[in-house]
Design a binder for these strands. Structure first.
Length: 228
DNA sequence: GCGACAG
DNA sequence: ATCTTGTCGC
């Protein structure tokens, strides 16, 4: 009952969970802690490491973290990406000693063909406020935002606004922000800007990215040592 | 029919 | 996602 066995089953799961997304929010305006989630893959593609880092929202210092290694749970299919990483991410979340006030996911939330991307899925399953921050678009049309940090333009799919194209740094390629669960788009935008004082991507994403990459390397090293 | 397609 | 060389800039 955890991971679907087919594309059809995965689509059914999304249809069943999508009504559970809280689109009202508005979510915490001043969260004490914010979690970043990310996954790294081995080149062979048969192993992955999921990491969660919890940052003090004010100082951006890491106050807790957890990793989980495993196998991709599903083939990569655009639109069904969440099923690939969800089990490992949930396992890592379970290992945290603190419950974060907000989840910042590496991928989209409502900016998804069926309005149920990874950030929505994680938000619904954990019932935590969640937002999605994607580096590249999955769906939608937009015009480039002005060049300054903080500038944004709506991301539209059909006749609905599914997210924002947000410039987090002056003159740097924008990111794609969307609501995951229990958050407003305005608040999601504010939270992402608060997490990007220096780099294009949120500090949460950056710390989680480093952690899961390191975990993969450690796993490789241990594997090699045991083979000698 | 063709291209696009989170990570 | 991951593999890659060089290159530009602080």
């Amino acid at each position: 009952m955890g991971t679907p066995g087919s594309v059809a089953e995965a689509l059914a799961v999304q249809d069943r969970l999508r009504p559970l997304v809280d689109l009202v929010g508005p979510g915490p305006a001043a969260p004490a802690t914010v979690a970043g989630l990310d996954v790294a893959y081995a080149e062979s593609g048969d192993r992955l490491a999921a990491a969660v880092t919890v940052l003090d929202a004010r100082t951006l210092a890491v106050v807790d973290s957890a990793v989980s290694v495993g196998r991709p749970a599903f083939d990569y299919v655009p639109g069904l990406f969440a099923f690939r990483e969800l089990p490992a991410l949930l396992a890592a979340l379970d290992r945290l000693t603190v419950r974060p006030d907000l989840l910042v996911c590496d991928g989209h939330g409502l900016a998804h063909p069926r309005r149920f991307g990874l950030a929505c899925h994680l938000g619904v399953v954990t019932d935590l406020p969640a937002i999605g921050v994607g580096k590249t678009p999955l769906v939608g049309r937009w015009v480039p935002p002005a060049g300054r940090r903080g500038a944004w333009e709506p991301l539209r799919d059909g006749d609905e606004v599914v997210g924002r194209v947000l410039r987090t740094r002056d003159g740097v390629k924008p990111v794609f922000v969307s609501v995951g669960h229990r958050m407003s788009l305005d608040n999601a935008t504010a939270r992402v800007l608060a997490l990007t004082p220096r780099y294009r991507l949120p500090e949460t994403t950056r710390t989680a990215d480093r952690l899961c990459r390191d975990a993969l390397q450690e796993g490789n090293a241990a594997h090699i040592r045991s083979a000698l």
